[in-house]
């Protein structure tokens, strides 16, 4: 709040950046939102050009990330509101949507969003049978039965008294 006063809120808000997705669509983002992403911040520091092309993020994902950044750059919102926004942001999203989101946040280095999404993905895996996880996430079991038994023996404590319950 103090920082915006120093910068002069009007000039700071007017500055904006154009971000282009891999589909060629362009998004107008305020600079205060863009710098929340570490890699965008770096790009903006290096070059004067206000157009940033992101070759590996598609429209849908980019729109979501930008919605997140703009919400978090808004000084008018309280931390509680932002937290509930985060909750809503990831809830009800399909796994694949989350996957692209987490990849995008990794590229853009938006740490807090990356954590939120990773947490959501972990929640999906929580309390699930190994078979469920394999099936749902398309993970090929390439262990031999002997190797699998060996792993179970080594980490016996994790398998001991309680199998993960199926949902």
């Amino acid at each position: 709040m103090v920082t915006t006063d120093e910068k002069g809120p009007l000039t700071a808000k007017k500055k904006s950046v154009i971000i282009r997705s891999c589909d060629g669509d362009e998004f107008l983002v305020s600079e205060s939102a863009a710098v929340l992403s570490t890699s965008l911040k770096k790009i903006l520091e290096e070059k004067e050009d206000r157009l940033i092309h992101l070759s590996d993020i598609d429209n849908k994902t980019l729109a979501m990330v930008i919605a997140y950044l703009s919400t978090h750059a808004d000084d008018g919102l309280s931390d509680d509101l932002k937290r509930s926004f985060d909750q809503e942001f990831v809830s009800g999203k399909e796994f694949d949507v989350l996957k692209y989101l987490v990849l995008a946040t990794d590229t853009l280095q938006v740490t807090c969003l990356c954590y939120t999404v990773a947490k959501k993905m972990a929640d999906i895996m929580k309390n699930k049978l190994v078979e469920w996880v394999r099936r749902e996430f398309d993970i090929q079991n390439d262990y031999t039965p002997e190797a699998e038994a060996e792993i179970r023996r080594l980490d016996a404590w994790a398998w001991d008294d309680r199998q993960l319950e199926d949902d």
């Binding site: 895996m125 929580k126 190994v130 079991n141 994790a158 993960l164």
Partner: peptide, 16 residues
Amino acid sequence: ISRLTLREATITSILS
């Protein structure tokens, strides 16, 4: 997997 419990995280080693 860091956000799973330690037990669950250990179990993921069986996936592949």
